[in-house]
């Protein structure tokens, strides 16, 4: 690829005195001086969160209020800063979610480590961990910056489910696929 030498344009005398430029600059700044402020008054006014925003990772329930996470630990595996720590456990039989069997006993996300990359959301096969709109987190100590399971569900709430995977399974059990 040929290198094109760009000749710098020689400055005119007016430009070299620097004065027209300064005056032009002064005019520009004084113009802005009289324009209204663009600042968002943050705590009172909230910014519009664009779709796909990656806020604090949370755990969500499905519309039946059932926890979606099955503690497959893929997020723990994929998490680049190793912020997620899961202790798996089994769901008691007869809890109404028999097809799930497994749920996290403990689910901790260390927000001091989290880099909001969203890989956990990407990898989650159950769409249980979602980076939502919450963007501000604070605490008085390191321990307060670790979100435990109950806090994660509190932050996450319930999201509409597109698949109803486990409901379909239940329908299959009573329908054609059942073991009659």
């Amino acid at each position: 690829m040929a290198v094109i030498q760009v000749q710098r344009k020689p400055l005119s005398l007016a430009e070299r005195t620097y004065i027209p430029q300064v005056i032009g600059g002064l005019l520009t700044t004084i113009k802005y001086f009289f324009r209204p402020s663009e600042t968002l008054q943050y705590p009172e006014q909230r910014p519009a969160i664009p779709p796909g925003y990656r806020g604090v990772p949370t755990l969500v329930m499905d519309p039946h209020g059932r926890e979606k996470c099955v503690s497959c630990q893929l997020c723990e595996f994929v998490c680049p800063p190793k912020a997620i720590r899961i202790t798996p456990g089994s769901v008691a039989q007869g809890a109404g979610v028999d097809h799930v069997e497994k749920a996290p006993q403990a689910f901790d996300i260390d927000m001091l480590r989290c880099i909001y990359c969203g890989l956990c959301e990407e990898v989650c096969p159950e769409e249980a961990i979602v980076l939502q709109n919450q963007f501000s987190m604070s605490g008085y100590g390191r321990s307060e910056m670790v979100n435990h399971k109950d806090r994660l569900y509190e932050l996450g709430g319930t999201l509409p489910d597109k698949h109803f995977k486990w409901d379909k399974k239940k329908a299959a059990e009573t329908g054609a696929g059942g073991h009659h």
């Binding site: 802005y32 009289f34 600042t39």
Partner: peptide, 10 residues
């Protein structure tokens, strides 16, 4: 304040 107004801040 002047800095802020020139930069369109409050």
């Amino acid at each position: 304040k002047v800095s802020a107004w020139i930069q369109r801040r409050p």
